[in-house]
């Protein structure tokens, strides 16, 4: 009984301390000040588990069709490259300024520290975005077909040279006809 009381007291103190800390305003919220390891771990774990759970039933279509690269390239360049970079570029104002730093999608899976790299997970993240991370929900304004095309392009991105990237991402009138 005494142990139960002690546990209850510790729990109450912990909850009050957490709320007290949140209300105190002592946590540095500036993006130029990195999260502590514990906070970073908690946020990353929350993100990975949430995305894995939400995307587990998504059926991935065939993504090796060149037409998908043609459709996804220009969208990636205009919507994603400023944060997630492009071949030949290792940083940008946004990649440096955001915290946590957005993953560099020009390098292979795993090398940029993200574990949520499956196509179904990428699709989900692009479509729904991530709260308080700077990642918008593109699904509000872009249909699934366009999002899958972006996923297909991102799959190929680590292999692309700056020259290939330039051609694939240039938006032309014929490109418009093919992507619709």
């Amino acid at each position: 009984m005494q142990i139960l009381k002690l546990l209850l007291m510790v729990s109450v103190i912990a909850v009050v301390s957490i709320f007290g800390f949140v209300y105190s305003g002592l946590y540095p919220i500036g993006a130029d000040d990195s999260h502590t390891r514990v906070v970073y771990w908690a946020l990353e774990t929350l993100l990975e588990r949430s995305v894995a759970n939400a995307s587990k039933d998504i059926v991935v279509p065939a993504l090796d069709d060149p037409k998908l690269l043609l459709a996804g390239g220009p969208d990636y360049n205009e919507m994603c490259a400023s944060c997630h970079l492009k071949p030949g570029k290792s940083e940008s104002d946004l990649s440096l300024g955001l915290s946590p730093e957005p993953p560099n999608l020009t390098i292979s899976d795993g090398d940029h520290g993200d574990d949520h790299d499956g196509p179904e997970q990428r699709f989900w993240v692009i479509k729904h975005g991530i709260k308080a991370s700077g990642m918008p929900a593109w699904g509000l304004t872009h249909d699934d077909q366009r999002i899958w095309a972006m996923v297909a392009f991102i799959q190929k991105l680590p292999e692309l040279t700056p020259f290939q990237y330039q051609i694939l991402t240039a938006r032309t009138s014929s490109n418009e006809e093919h992507s619709h």
Partner: peptide, 20 residues
């Protein structure tokens, strides 16, 4: 494109109704 053929979302916004 294969994703346009209906069995892979086909431009609809439902992710096959599974993702969320």
């Amino acid at each position: 494109a294969s994703v346009k053929d209906g069995d892979h979302d086909g431009g609809h916004n439902d992710d096959h109704g599974h993702d969320d």
